[in-house]
Amino acid sequence: MSGRRMSAVLAVMLTGSFLTGCERYVVVDPAMVPSLNARDWTIRSQPGVSTGPSAPPPVAAPAAAPAVSAQPVQL
């Protein structure tokens, strides 16, 4: 291969390298890092007071008393 031809091949390779190399970043720009960090926790639910593993289950509400009919009873 002549020197001139080799130079041409090199030039094409390097040009291609520059073009394909552009914009091939996976890591973000350092200036973007603060915007990717949440400023605070997102609290979806607050903790209640610990009842311990042996605490009794909550007592169910008493069943409602039978409804009293408003109709007068026919004797």
Partner: peptide, 17 residues
């Protein structure tokens, strides 16, 4: 994600370089 049996549920995103 931080949770607890007593009811806490909290999330937060972090990014470091």
């Amino acid at each position: 994600h931080v949770t607890s049996p007593t009811g806490l549920a909290a999330d937060r995103s972090f990014y470091f370089k």
